[in-house]
Nucleic acid binder design. Structure first.
Lengths: 105, 105
DNA sequence: TTTTGTGCTTACATTTCGTAACTTAGTTTA
DNA sequence: TAAACTAAGTTACGAAATGTAAGCACAAAA
């Protein structure tokens, strides 16, 4: 009964990007490498979910995790080439939102 | 403690687009006006969630709902101008997925 | 010796989601 | 005449995802 003829690559891309916080996280990392605590403060995301999402994006090779052996140890997260390649998507969303989204409360 | 300097329009755009099924639903409607049952079959989404998402997108003025008074009554959904303006976003995701997403299981 | 910083993990409550059955109203079939 | 079908949803309920808050290991600073 499933007649989905949608490209599986595209479907997987949507699955990753639509997972909560992921797009905003990638947007945040477009500014450059950042450590865990910085991301957390900037985004207002909980540590539980942040850890979960960073792991997911690392597995998908969108984010790279680097341990800096200082004291206390610092972890830096940055976008991979695959991650940086998402910039046009974010730009397109930015453009659309500036043209069409209005926020009245 | 919240230091988010992210544009509220952009944030709202992400909130809408990241809500599960919404992006895929808009992608589906880019093909043209479609009725409820067609969308449901094509996407493999449950009626409960489909109804919920269509209502949300209607409120956001991304989707337009039209009642066709035939017997039995048929409902047609189509993208508004605001909805169609999302095409570049979808295209960007499509392009990224074709270049970077691989699906090995 | 208590406190602070860093990057998480754990427990638990709330929210969202998927599944399947049911609804309303007119229409064709047995 | 009654059962079955179609379209577009609703409703009830269990499962999964998410938010909240507290805890943990380790070292250095107060």
């Amino acid at each position: 009964m499933d007649q989905k003829k949608i490209c599986p690559r595209f479907e997987k891309a949507l699955k990753i990007l639509n997972h909560s916080w992921n797009t905003l996280l990638i947007y945040q990392l477009l500014e450059g490498p950042q450590r865990y605590s910085t991301i957390k403060k900037q985004m207002g995301i909980s540590s539980r979910v942040l850890t979960e999402r960073l792991k997911e994006l690392e597995i998908e090779n969108i984010v790279k995790r680097t341990v800096i052996p200082s004291t206390p140890v610092v972890i830096e997260y940055e976008l991979t080439e695959k991650g940086h390649a998402l910039a046009p998507v974010l730009k397109a969303i930015e453009k659309w939102s500036s043209m069409w989204v209005n926020i009245e409360e």
